[in-house]
Design a binder for these strands. Structure first.
Length: 152
DNA sequence: GCCAACGTTGGC
DNA sequence: GCCAACGTTGGC
């Protein structure tokens, strides 16, 4: 099983929004970056776990855990010319973008802030803490996953 | 609100 | 295929 970290701007969609849906799931639409798409499409598997990270907000950090409950399928929001995820180069016959479905699992007992995450040498290889990182979705090594849970 | 980093686009 | 211009991300 793989571990992940997935960012979301809480003003857009927060972990509380995901929790409110439970037990319904959420299609993780709107990923429009090839590197992120490839990981999502080729490596994310049902049952994988992901940290929910709040980005671009006052309290940035890891706030909870979600589970991948459906493997990748075409992101139909890319076909909606009225939506803000529209991409005219993506078609039903030849979809360019993909998404997975996620389900709320739990909040962490506390928010683990970005500034705290940056302080641990155990996490120095995590793309999140590297300079200039802009990936909205990234793999987390099992050792990193367990370390983060151990400091929760 | 600013701006560095970086991905994408498009002219050549 | 190069690369400048441009747009976006996201921390600060």
């Amino acid at each position: 099983m793989n571990y992940w970290l997935i960012k979301s701007e809480p003003e857009d969609f927060s972990i509380d929004d995901l929790k409110a849906l439970f037990p319904r799931t959420e299609p993780w639409d709107g990923v429009r970056n090839y590197q992120a798409r490839n990981m999502m499409r080729d490596q994310m598997r049902m049952g994988d776990m992901a940290f929910f990270y709040h980005s671009n907000c006052k309290e940035m950090g890891i706030v909870g855990i979600m589970e991948i409950v459906r493997e990748s399928y075409p992101d139909y929001t890319s076909w909606d010319s009225d939506g803000n995820h529209f991409d005219p180069k993506s078609t039903e016959e030849n979809p360019r973008w993909f998404m997975v479905d996620v389900n709320y699992q739990r909040h962490l007992s506390r928010l683990i802030s970005l500034s705290e995450l940056k302080r641990y040498s155990q996490l120095s290889e995590l793309p999140l803490v590297k300079r200039g990182n802009r990936l909205s979705l990234m793999p987390v090594q099992s050792t990193e996953w367990e370390f983060i849970l151990s400091i929760e």
